[in-house]
Design a binder for these strands. Structure first.
Lengths: 197, 197
DNA sequence: AGCGTTCTTGACTACATCGTCCATAACCCT
DNA sequence: AGGGTTATGGACGATGTAGTCAAGAACGCT
């Protein structure tokens, strides 16, 4: 019927995402994306529309991946729930430090665009809400397993942990070193209400 | 001896800062800054150098103002130290929500530029360190006044509160509502170790 | 008042950038 | 095999952008 695509859509989107991730929305030119993906501009515009639409597509995919990752890391048997929580948060602290300022795309895009782009701010908000939900589920599992005080409000605590998570991200971008980020995370975990014994 | 400046340097810098604050570094053109300040481009370049140098100047001033503000809000008599702490953090939560996504310039600049601009990342880091110092001083005052457990590590707790502060900023930019931001802040404050009685 | 010095204004250059368009290529169905 | 249809690549136009420059304006010192 017609000529098929030559390029792989997913890897093109990944290349575009990495470019936006590195140089931001305003700082990334469509020529740079064309170079990064290897596509001609005709193909780029034909397949994805303009710059804004391409970014929205890329951002949507990335937000979903972020939510999936949180769910994957935080869900499982109650017995290891607390262990998964600490691994998730400490892993993030280490990752923030290791990537040395090449932080999270959600944070970067939100900071740059949320103010002006309703689509981005809405997507960021639901991403945070979903990560918080994953944390809430995990904390409830911790409560069932006796690692967290049963009377504590899991949703409140999840909100706090999400906030710490985003704060670690922000500090990491400024260059705070790994041991500091980890010890802040540990302080946050140590502040969680333990069950009476 | 020579013709004096017609414009007020400080208000020009403020106008430039607001422009960068609104549209980011890459998203702000020198023409936009010329329009915002009312200066011709010749004056702009003559007085401040290029775009990057202007931004560094603006950013430096803003970081100092941020540090000063933290010190002003957090220092004072031991008796009201805890009160000042809660006012500082809750005030920030409210401000984040009220400004509706027009967040903090330090966060925005760090997210956009820290990765590529050594000067910005260094300035961001020292800003965070100084705010943490102000928080540490406040927490030590709280300890002297018996509001915080005397054996607690004030610096660790200050690191956590700074992280929460930055996290609230990030969540606020995505559009999280005021009551949520405030209750997260209250949860963080409630998790501070209280003195034995 | 006259002069040297600095400031101001905005036209100008050189290049970057978004998006379009079209000639050509590749494929599928009949 | 041929034709209809869609993809490709890159030239192109219009506008945006960083930074320069020169002609003139405003001041203070003598």
């Amino acid at each position: 019927m017609a000529r098929p695509r030559e390029f792989d859509e997913e890897s093109a989107l990944n290349a575009a995402r990495d470019q936006f991730w590195m140089t931001g929305y305003a700082g990334t030119s469509m020529d740079a994306i064309a170079a990064a993906t290897g596509l001609g501009k005709g193909s780029l515009y034909g397949a994805f529309g303009g710059k804004r639409e391409l970014f929205h597509r890329v951002y949507d995919d990335h937000c979903n991946a972020t939510i999936d990752s949180a769910n994957r890391h935080l869900s499982g048997a109650d017995e290891q729930a607390f262990e998964r929580l600490t691994a998730y948060l400490l892993g993030h602290a280490t990752a923030c430090a290791e990537r040395r300022q090449h932080g999270c795309l959600v944070a970067k895009a939100t900071a740059e665009l949320a103010e002006h782009d309703e689509v981005v701010s809405a997507r960021s908000l639901t991403t945070f809400e979903n990560v918080q939900l994953a944390l809430t589920g995990n904390l409830e599992a911790c409560q069932r397993n006796g690692d967290i005080h049963p009377a504590a409000d899991a949703q409140q605590l999840a909100g706090l942990l999400l906030t710490v998570h985003r704060g670690i991200e922000a500090l990491g971008k400024a260059g705070t070193d790994e041991s500091t980020l980890r010890s802040i995370t540990e302080t946050a975990l140590a502040g969680l209400p333990r069950p009476p014994r």
